[in-house]
Write a protein that binds this DNA or RNA. Structure first.
Lengths: 168, 168
DNA sequence: GCCAACTATTGCATTGTGTAACATTTAGTG
DNA sequence: CACTAAATGTTACACAATGCAATAGTTGGC
């Protein structure tokens, strides 16, 4: 009994524009994920993607207590406790008991941690700029418009009240 | 010494269109990743994203031996061995000693595994179609064009010779 | 003042990941 | 043909990320 072999599952029977969009976004995602990983590695080989994402959240949101940080990361507190353990060990995050409540802790970037975020971000931005530079001029504006439309249609807040670029 | 607090790191000083593109693609990625995760969960709560990705590779490429599968997944053989252990245990993958060489194994989807891929893919496509349906008509074509241009500028092969939609 | 709720941590389990060491099998070479 | 080298997959060990359950300490309400 031989199962039919499709060239690509998303291009199988019932092909709609959903497939083309999926492939397009997925390709772009692959590209950016790889690019981000390389940007991180170029600054510090030992920092993982989840760790960098945590640093970015602290960078954008400022000092946070653990439960709030966990919410932003969409993770559970135990996970975050352990990640923080490692990042404190690496000298990238500072953990202090809250001055207002002794059961809370306040997490913040160290200068070192802030520096990592800055350098990785700059690196990534440079790489992306290089790619955009190779795109046809006409496409550049269209790219942003189209994807913002997609994002809006998908239900993600058009503008995050607090600034929201912390995916990785 | 107070570190400056930027609203969004990618929008910090030196703001270029790279930032807008990054945010746009990252938002779209977030959207699709979440959507994919939900599509997988709706079919089988126990299947993880890396596992599903492996299933998709087997679905698109057909039976593979372990080292080749590992290459497609950009992973090392030991990782794949263990993932396969679990997927064989779950009845989604079939592992056979190769008929041509007794040191090779041939991995392939079981009917059950193929069914999972089909159902998750359909589900995901349906969800994406719903989102696209909410987009302004004019944007739909622009979306695909723009992202293909971005992907091409990023160096990813414009058309994968063997069909290449196995990101997750 | 005591009990309930909150906050973070620790214990335990699972998955994914990698490097190094290993066993088995195949291929090549003299 | 015999022996060695390469290929192939697995196992051993280590570590990051993740979650649930249990726990310790703290705070707040009544």
């Amino acid at each position: 009994m031989t199962r039919g072999r499709t060239v690509s599952p998303t291009r199988a029977a019932g092909n709609t524009s959903a497939d083309a969009v999926t492939d397009a976004v997925l390709s772009a995602s692959r590209l950016l994920v790889g690019l981000s990983a390389r940007s991180i590695a170029s600054v510090d080989e030992t920092i993982t993607m989840p760790q960098f994402r945590l640093l970015v959240v602290l960078s954008t949101r400022g000092p946070l207590k653990l439960t709030v940080l966990a919410e932003y990361l969409d993770a559970k507190p135990p996970s975050v406790t352990r990640m923080i353990d490692r990042l404190v060990g690496a000298g990238l995050v500072d953990r202090q008991t809250s001055p207002v409540s002794r059961r809370e802790v306040v997490l913040d970037l160290t200068d070192n941690g802030a520096s990592v975020v800055t350098r990785v971000t700059q690196r990534r931005r440079r790489e992306i700029a290089r790619i955009i530079g190779r795109m046809p001029e006409r496409q550049r504006a269209a790219l942003i418009d189209a994807f913002e439309a997609f994002r809006d249609a998908g239900g993600e807040p058009a503008v995050d009240p607090a600034g929201y670029a912390d995916w990785m």
